[in-house]
Amino acid sequence: MTEVVTTTPGLFPLPDWTKDELSELKGHQKADLIDGTEGAEIQSVYDRTRGELIERQQAAGLDRVVEGQARWDDMIAHPLAVADAVETRGIVRYYDNNNFYREPVVTDDLAATGDVAAELDSAADRVDSGLQAVLPGPYSLADLATDEHYGDEQAFLGAIAEFLTAELAEFPDVETLFLLEPSLVENPPGDGADQRASEAIDHVAAATDADVVAHTYWGALEEKVYAHLMDADVDAIGFDFVANHEDNIYNINEYGTKSDVALGLVDGQNTLVEDPETIEERIEWVGEQTPSADFETVYATINTETFYLPGNRFEEKLDALGAVGKTEVEA
């Protein structure tokens, strides 16, 4: 029997009222706002938005609640985009989709900003238990950034990992940390770099007492990348079963996985809403296809960030996910 924990990888779509108020305050779209320099009125909008997003997750009955990342205009590049040692330059396509972020260019020694910690402090005031933090994984953050300071890929990845551990040191207590690592799938590291990516993830995971999930998505990991990721001391690896179930099943059966697992079973990019029974059937199907795995905890989650979704569909997916796993299921 397996405990099912319902959660999300964060980065939620903004409510319409938030977009309207931000647009009115700044005279242009939210995507043009400069993170980290907001005035009191804009900070108030984000704070009210944070409260609404948290309350909506609680109303849906999710077991883990995220801050929502409403301020993350630059998607998972956000923690770098607000750093003093980083210049944000031209607009870059976010992987292979119609979303964009400002290119973060590292020009000096990185140091913690406390930006994400401040968001979590505010969220912690609203969440009695089950708070989950979200950060980019070190490999994906390094992949999305440009280095004009450290001069070496290995040194840059190490600096990014140290930057993330310094950010973690300022976090309030959280139960779970999702490290988002889509670049491991989208731009997989080659020989040698795959081991260093795993070591960087391990370094970040060691900096927190929270349960750490290295969540990969938009496909399945190459075999060698996955085998190295298994060496990282994380509590769970996340799999995108929406984008690629066959290769993810293969990796689990061929190389094993952690005692806990995160299953991306709800589509974060499609407006079709899954019902709770379908999600539960998918959890059971994964268990049937991986007979040698004995999962203690299944994090049932949306496969990707959800900022792609219209607000009503996003909320319906939260409700469906929150209704899953209130009792133990076979997996």
Rank of each mutant, 00 (worst) to 15 (best):
V92D: 07
P138N: 02
A70F: 09
L184W: 03
V242W: 01
V86R: 08
E67G: 05
L14C: 15
A77H: 01
D35C: 07
N312H: 14
D128N: 12
I201W: 02
L177E: 09
T301Y: 09
I160R: 09
R93K: 05
D16C: 08
A159E: 01
E222K: 04
Y101C: 10
L229K: 06
D128F: 14
R89P: 03
D275Y: 05
L25E: 10
V105L: 11
E280R: 07
E254I: 00
N97Q: 00
K224V: 04
E296M: 13
N244S: 08
L272Q: 14
N248F: 02
Y150D: 06
V4R: 13
L179E: 01
T7K: 07
P172K: 07
F163V: 06
R56L: 08
A31H: 14
N244G: 07
H78I: 06
N97C: 00
E21S: 14
G68C: 05
A166E: 10
G27P: 06
G137A: 08
A207M: 02
D35P: 10
V261E: 09
T290G: 02
L53M: 10
Q289K: 15
E330W: 08
L179R: 03
A205N: 05
D128T: 06
L221M: 11
F314K: 12
Q195N: 12
Y308S: 00
T37F: 15
R48A: 10
Q289P: 05
P276T: 15
A236G: 06
N98R: 00
A210D: 06
K26Q: 13
A142I: 02
P172D: 06
L131G: 04
L263F: 15
V82F: 12
S292K: 10
M75Y: 13
E330H: 03
V82G: 06
Q69S: 09
E288T: 04
M75D: 05
D147A: 11
Q154T: 13
I302S: 15
R64D: 03
